[in-house]
């Protein structure tokens, strides 16, 4: 079982790292999601694996065995927080894409992707921008 979990963490990490090294933001978001999975499972695994030993106290059981609850508590909040982080990241991505007209990661000067509906829209009519925004 341990080998399976460890190899799963490894595969998740490898694919995550490969994706965050891509040049487009969406790929990087996918990569970060994979890395979040990997990290969460890794943290969870530091409590060592056990089956049938959920940390719910059972006053009727004799010699009850419980797994380590602490990594679980850590991972529980980590899962929720990583969702929040992904959401912020997605919002940044959208903002950058809508402002710059492309979703490249690297900061070199590039032309917007012209075959894109959004940028075509701008080319058509920028005057739709509300007047108060110019002030």
């Amino acid at each position: 079982m341990e080998a399976l979990v460890a190899s799963a963490i490894g595969v998740l990490t490898a694919c995550g790292v490969y994706l965050i090294l891509r040049l487009r933001v969406f790929a990087a978001i996918l990569g970060i999601s994979l890395l979040s999975y990997a990290v969460n499972v890794f943290l969870f695994s530091t409590g060592r694996l056990a089956t049938g030993a959920a940390p719910i106290l059972d006053k009727y059981a004799e010699n009850p065995v419980y797994t380590d609850p602490l990594p679980q508590a850590l991972v529980l909040t980590a899962i929720v927080i990583s969702f929040g982080m992904t959401a912020v990241l997605v919002m940044f991505t959208l903002g950058a894409y809508l402002e710059a007209g492309h979703d490249r990661i690297d900061m070199d000067e590039v032309e917007p992707d012209i075959d894109d509906p959004i940028t075509e829209g701008i080319a058509l009519d920028m005057s739709a921008e509300p007047a108060e925004d110019r002030t």
């Binding site: 959401a87 919002m91 959004i118 940028t119 920028m126």
Partner: peptide, 26 residues
């Protein structure tokens, strides 16, 4: 994080990105 996203959205909509959205082919 939630509030930051909300604030970002408000800023985006009142800037050039908002104009792009209104003119887009969505």
């Amino acid at each position: 994080a939630g509030l930051a996203i909300y604030a970002l959205m408000e800023t985006l909509l009142s800037g050039p990105a908002g104009a792009r959205l209104r003119n887009s082919g969505y």
